[in-house]
Design a protein around this nucleic acid. Structure first.
Lengths: 115, 115
DNA sequence: CAGTATCCTATCGGATACTG
DNA sequence: CAGTATCCGATAGGATACTG
C-alpha cells in the first residue's frame, strides 16, 4: 500500500495539507461546489464567515489555482467566483472526509478544539 | 447525492473539520497509522514538530477519542500512543486527500499560504 | 524518556466602519 | 455590491529551558 508515510517529513502532501488546514479554505471550496457564485451570495451560503476571511481565503485559493475570479460589468458591479478544474478535483477527496465527519460526529468526545 | 451542502452552515461536518483543521492533527494521526508509537519516536518520525505542538495535538486527539495513551512502566519511563478504532477509520478518508495532494502538488501555484 | 512551562511571534478570525 | 482598512482578542506554533 502507498498510504503509509505520505504525510510525514517534507512530502508534497504536507505542503498541500497546510494550504487547506484552516477553518475556511475547504468550506469555501465546497461553497463553490455547485457552480459559480457571487461574493455576497457565497458568503450568505456559507454562513458565519466574515468579509475579511472570505476575501482572504478566496485570494489564497486564487493564488493556488483552485479558484478564479471574474469581474462582472453589471450595473451595481459584481464579481463571480468559480472553481478551476483543479478546484473541482478537490471536491471528491473532501467529500470523503465530509462523509466520515457526518458518520462519526457522535463518537467524537467533544467538538472542543479547546485546549 | 449527499455531498453538496455538507460543509455549509452548522453541519456536524463543520465541527469535525474544525477539529482537524490545523497543521498537526492529521499528520499525527498518520504518524500513528502503522501502529503504536512512543512519544519521541513519533516526534522523530513526523519531523519538524515541537514538543509543545505534539503534546497539545495528542491531548486534543485523546479528548476526541481518536488516540489513546498508555503509560509504560519501563525503567526510563515511557508512553505509548495508538489510534482508537475511530482514529483508524480516519486513515482512509485522509489517505484520499493525501493522494490528491501528491498528484496535484505541481499544479498548485505556490505552496504559499502566505498572505 | 516524556513531557511541562514560559516566552515570543505570526496568523487566524470576528466586528465594525468605510469606499468605489 | 464587493470589497478594503483597521482594531482587537484568541489561538497556533516555534524555541528554549526545565523537571520527574
Amino acid at each position: 500500500m502507498t498510504d503509509h508515510d505520505v504525510f510525514l517529513a517534507d512530502c508534497p502532501a504536507r505542503t498541500t495539507l497546510d494550504l487547506i488546514a484552516d477553518t475556511w479554505s475547504v468550506v469555501v471550496v465546497f461553497g463553490l461546489g455547485h457552480g459559480p457564485r457571487r461574493y455576497n451570495d457565497l458568503r450568505d451560503r456559507i454562513g458565519g464567515i466574515s468579509n475579511k476571511m472570505l476575501t482572504q481565503t478566496l485570494r489564497k485559493l486564487e493564488r493556488n489555482n483552485l479558484v478564479t475570479r471574474r469581474a462582472l460589468s453589471t450595473a451595481p458591479a459584481g464579481a463571480e467566483y468559480r472553481l478551476t478544474p483543479l478546484g473541482e478535483s478537490l471536491l471528491g477527496p473532501v467529500s470523503v472526509l465530509a462523509r466520515w465527519a457526518e458518520e462519526h460526529a457522535d463518537e467524537l468526545g467533544d467538538g472542543g478544539s479547546g485546549d
